[in-house]
């Protein structure tokens, strides 16, 4: 299941809701992405006071559903949950949650990492960071993220 929402989410409640009643699940893996208070492209003196996530309504949901489908076809998963927020957030707040549940841990670990790597390069979200003066700057895409997504491509030999 995927959800795109402005509201924050409760990680524990989401995981409990997903596992509740499904006793075929033997392991759950989760990743939570948070708003950092510094810019990784600039020196430490530049603090991030807030971040605004813009997205492409419609395409976002479509891409997240496609990514979930790819993971379900590739690993034996009992359940998948992807929640991604949009709008303005402050340091420490949740941005994204990926939860994968499987009978065994390997599928849950791998699928969780795959989903994060894929959504970072395919889901249409853009981060605008605000510094202490309230000035905004768009975050640049990182080549390391493309490389991370690429490693899951079967033709790349992994």
């Amino acid at each position: 299941m995927i959800r795109v929402q402005a509201e924050n989410f409760d990680v524990g409640a989401e995981i409990n809701a997903l596992s509740n009643g499904n006793t075929a699940i033997g392991g759950i893996c989760s990743f939570v992405g948070l708003v950092r208070d510094f810019q990784h492209t600039k020196d430490d003196a530049t603090r991030v006071s807030a971040m605004t996530l813009e997205h492409y309504p419609g395409m976002t949901e479509k891409k997240l559903q496609e990514i979930e489908e790819i993971a379900r076809n590739r690993w034996p998963l009992e359940d998948v949950l992807i929640i991604h927020r949009y709008g303005r957030m402050e340091p420490g707040e949740n941005i994204v949650l990926v939860v994968t549940a499987s009978a065994h841990r390997k599928a849950a670990f791998e699928a969780c990492e795959f989903l994060m790597d894929y959504l970072k390069t395919k889901a249409p979200f853009w981060k605008l960071e605000e510094d202490e003066k309230g000035e905004g700057s768009w975050v640049d895409a990182r080549e390391a993220d493309d490389a991370a997504a690429q490693k899951w491509d079967p033709s790349a030999g992994s």
Binding site: Y56, K63, I95, F125, W126, K127, D140, A141, D145
Partner: peptide, 26 residues
């Protein structure tokens, strides 16, 4: 129409055409 496209892909009048920077979510 909400799928990534290449420069030589065809377009028509009724399409939804979006232009944006490389994505930075997650």
């Amino acid at each position: 129409n909400q799928d990534y496209a290449n420069m030589d892909d065809p377009v028509k009048q009724g399409d939804e055409f979006a232009i944006f920077p490389p994505v930075t979510g997650g």
